[in-house]
Computed example of a mutant assay.
Amino acid sequence: MKKDLKDRTKKFALTVIDMVENIPNKPAGNVIKRQLLKSSTSIGANYRSALRGRSKAEFISKIGIVEEEADETVFWLELLNDSGLVHQSLINPLLDEANQLTAIFTSMGKTAKTTK
Rank of each mutant, 00 (worst) to 15 (best):
L101Y: 04
V74K: 07
L36H: 08
K2E: 12
E97T: 13
F105S: 05
S83V: 05
F12E: 09
V74S: 09
K3D: 15
A45F: 13
K110C: 00
N92Y: 09
L80K: 03
L90R: 04
L51R: 03
I60S: 01
K56W: 00
A57L: 09
D7Y: 12
L79R: 03
L51V: 02
L80M: 06
Q88H: 14
G84P: 03
V66A: 01
L90E: 09
K10R: 10
V74M: 08
K6F: 12
T15E: 15
A112F: 01
I65F: 03
I32M: 05
I63P: 01
S42C: 12
A28I: 12
T111K: 09
F105D: 09
T102M: 06
K33C: 05
E58Q: 11
V74H: 05
K6P: 00
L80P: 05
S40I: 14
N81Y: 15
S42Y: 04
V16R: 00
E21S: 05
N25R: 10
A13E: 09
V20H: 02
V16T: 02
E69P: 09
L37C: 09
P27Y: 06
T102Y: 10
K38V: 13
K10W: 07
L36I: 10
P27C: 10
D71F: 12
M108F: 01
K11M: 11
I60G: 01
D7F: 13
R8T: 04
L37K: 04
T114S: 04
E68A: 15
S107L: 09
G84E: 07
T9E: 05
K62F: 01
K56H: 01
T115F: 03
G29T: 05
L95Q: 08
T41C: 10
I32Q: 01
R48E: 08
P24D: 12
M19C: 06
A13Y: 10
T106F: 05
N99D: 08
A112M: 05
N30R: 15
K3T: 08
L80D: 03
F12G: 09
F12C: 12
K38A: 15
M108E: 04
S42N: 13
N22V: 02
K2G: 06
D18K: 12
N46G: 08
D71S: 15
K11E: 15
M108T: 10
S55E: 03
M19N: 05
N22W: 03
D71K: 09
S55N: 03
L14R: 10
N25S: 13
K26R: 11
S107V: 00
R34L: 13
I60L: 02
I104M: 08
S83L: 06
S83C: 07
Q100I: 11
F75W: 13
K6V: 14
S42W: 02
E97Q: 14
E72W: 08
Q100C: 07
S49T: 12
N22K: 12
A45C: 04
P27D: 11
S49R: 10
F59N: 00
L80A: 07
I65W: 02
I43Q: 06
K113M: 11
R52Q: 14
K33I: 04
D71N: 14
